[in-house]
Amino acid sequence: MSKISSVFQDLKDKNQKAFIPFITAGDGGMELTLELMHQLVDDGASIIELGVPFSDPMADGPVIAKSHERSVARGYGLANVLELVSKFRETNDTTPIVLMGYLNPIEMFGYEDFANAARSAGVDGVLVVDMPPEESQELKRILSNSEIDFIFLVAPTTTDERLKFLSQVASGFIYFVSLKGVTGAGNINVDEVASNLSRIRKYISLPVGVGFGIKDGKTAKEISAKSDAIIVGSVLVSIVDEFSNDKNKLMSQMKEKSLEISQVLR
């Protein structure tokens, strides 16, 4: 069983839900990201999602898009993110790490080289926003040889037919995009999410996490009643931006927000 699967199994046994925070690697510097990762674990993160900085983050809203720009401006790329994961693994061998990003950096790295490097760094899952399952056979094969989970998005527009197809390629968990839009967009409609989740469950037995538009403990609690994990990104990334000149404040705000979410999931 993969590290990601066993985290979900443990939580299920305890009747709890997973808190999956997302931050963009290298935003504010790799040292800051490393420190944040450890703090997030202390504050209840079950899995950490790291954004791999990319120059053209098409599916992201302004908050996360700007964080990509800031990290890219520091010269960071996929190789730096893998280094970061290795460093994190020096003191944490249990919390699963998922890389979330775009395909071109992986194309340039080379699929085999990437899978090998990611495995030895200690990466557990990979989510490639602009690689639908139809185009993913080769990467899927290579990642599963390296025992890395290939995580896919499901959207409100995903048809039942595609859910069946996705169930054959996805592993680890499913990332349900709660709304039609970019990351950090608008307000989430809890009823609509609930009906989509029961539709997904008809076809897919993997744990389902919900992301896009979850900003506070209240929404997290409502959504978690129907899902297995809550994914929170933009609101955390905006803290990194807002308090970039005051690290103590940044760390304390991040702690406060993480606890607000993680506590309602226990």
Binding site: D56, V72, G77, Y102, N104, M131
Partner: peptide
């Protein structure tokens, strides 16, 4: 450039070794 993926298709792109466009 070299073959990569940008804006929904695989094609030649101008990018650096990190894959940044």
């Amino acid at each position: 450039g070299k073959p990569g993926v940008l804006h929904g298709n695989r094609t030649y792109v101008v990018c650096d070794q990190n894959g940044q466009i």
